[in-house]
């Protein structure tokens, strides 16, 4: 393993840590809003989702570049797919959370947040388990 490869993996991991943390947070703050109807929880969700979406988008682009460079495999495709789906659902969720009052979350907003959280965790699992690197070295 070269130093450059280690650096790339570290940065990629750091970028990915944002959607993992922020979409989990967004799901929790959504739940808090639905329990309390306290608007500030929904505001937290909005920012968490947009933040998660930006870093999730960066991680997705990076994964596509990796694929284009020829680092392919089923798991890498799955990883890219999860991040791509995360971007789509996350964008829809960002718009959903831009609605006002109860509509900013509601049943649909919470479902989208949970879906984003799940996709981010799948992507995180694939990356942090080292499975992607194993696949690449095979």
């Amino acid at each position: 393993m070269t130093g450059t490869a280690g650096l790339g993996r570290a940065v990629q991991g750091l970028i990915l840590s944002f959607p993992v943390a922020l979409f989990s947070l967004g799901t929790a703050t959504d739940a808090a809003y639905l329990r309390t109807a306290e608007m500030q929880w929904s505001n937290f969700s909005s920012w968490a989702i947009v933040g998660g979406l930006m870093f999730g988008g960066a991680a997705f682009v990076w994964s596509l570049i990796d694929l284009a460079w020829g680092r392919r495999g089923v798991l890498r495709l799955l990883y890219s797919g999860a991040l791509g789906a995360l971007c789509l659902v996350g964008l829809a969720n960002a718009f959903k959370h831009s609605q006002d009052g109860w509509s900013s979350v509601g049943a649909l907003g919470f479902t989208l947040s949970a879906l984003c959280c799940g996709l981010a965790l799948i992507a995180g699992w694939l990356r942090y388990s080292g499975m992607l690197d194993e696949e690449a070295s095979r």
Binding site: A37, Q99, D100, G101, W102, S103, S104
Partner: peptide
């Protein structure tokens, strides 16, 4: 406002 519009038509976005 904000609970209802044009008389008593509920705005579902407002909770409680």
């Amino acid at each position: 406002w904000p609970y209802s519009y044009w008389g008593q038509n509920l705005d579902p976005r407002v909770r409680p």
